[in-house]
Amino acid sequence: MDTYKLILNGKTLKGETTTEAVDAATAEKVFKHAANEHGVHGHWTYDPETKTFTVTE
């Protein structure tokens, strides 16, 4: 398992979190669910070198 990071750049919610996942696709599902639960919808990017997802509203 690897550690993946999410950076939230929402209009009303900003922050960072991490998750352990077997691959980037699994981490993305976890992060998108969490972002949706917090009402953050926007443009997603992924940097494979740093294993970091970013969502920007």
Rank of each mutant, 00 (worst) to 15 (best):
P48F: 07
A24T: 06
I7G: 01
T50R: 07
V40Y: 06
T12F: 14
D23I: 02
K11M: 13
T52A: 04
E20V: 14
H43A: 12
K29P: 02
T17M: 15
G10S: 08
A24G: 04
K11A: 12
T50K: 07
T54Y: 08
T18N: 05
L6S: 01
M1P: 08
T12P: 04
E57D: 07
A27V: 02
T3D: 04
L6H: 01
A21T: 04
G15I: 15
L6F: 08
P48E: 10
A21H: 02
K11I: 15
G42E: 01
T18R: 07
T3N: 05
K51E: 01
K5Q: 05
L8C: 13
H43K: 12
V22G: 09
F53D: 00
K32C: 09
A27W: 01
V40D: 02
N36T: 10
F31T: 00
D23C: 05
L13G: 07
T18Y: 14
A24Q: 09
E37S: 11
D2C: 14
W44C: 02
T54F: 06
K51M: 07
Y4K: 02
T26N: 08
H38R: 14
E57S: 06
G15W: 15
E28A: 10
T12K: 10
G39V: 04
G42I: 02
T3H: 06
K32W: 10
Y46L: 02
K29F: 09
T17K: 12
T17L: 15
D47C: 09
M1W: 12
A35K: 01
T12Y: 14
N36Y: 14
H33Y: 10
G42Y: 04
K14Q: 12
A35D: 01
T50A: 07
F53E: 00
T19D: 02
A35N: 03
V55Q: 01
A21I: 02
A34K: 13
D47M: 05
N36Q: 13
K14A: 07
G39R: 06
E28W: 15
V22P: 15
Y46A: 00
K5A: 04
M1E: 06
T19E: 03
A24L: 09
G42Q: 03
A35M: 12
V55M: 04
L8Y: 13
T50C: 05
H41P: 03
D23H: 03
Y4S: 02
K14G: 05
A21F: 04
I7A: 03
T19M: 11
M1Y: 12
P48A: 12
A25S: 09
H38K: 14
K14Y: 14
M1H: 09
N36R: 14
E57W: 07
G15H: 15
G42V: 02
L8V: 11
N9E: 08
V22S: 11
F31S: 00
A24M: 11
T19S: 04
K29H: 10
E57Q: 07
M1A: 07
E28P: 00
K14V: 10
H38G: 07
H41Q: 12
K5P: 01
V22L: 12
V55P: 00
E16F: 14
T3Q: 08
H41C: 11
K11D: 08
F31L: 05
H43P: 06
E16I: 12
A21C: 08
E20D: 10
E37G: 08
T52H: 02
A34Y: 15
T45G: 06
H38S: 12
K5F: 11
E20K: 13
D2E: 13
E49C: 10
V55I: 08
K51C: 04
A34C: 15
H38F: 15
L13Y: 15
E57P: 05
D23A: 03
E16P: 04
N36E: 14
F53S: 00
A27E: 00
K5M: 06
E49N: 11
T17V: 15
Y4D: 02
L6I: 04
K29Q: 11
T54R: 05
T26W: 07
K32T: 05
K51F: 08
Y4L: 02
L8T: 05
G39C: 06
E28M: 14
A21M: 03
V40A: 04
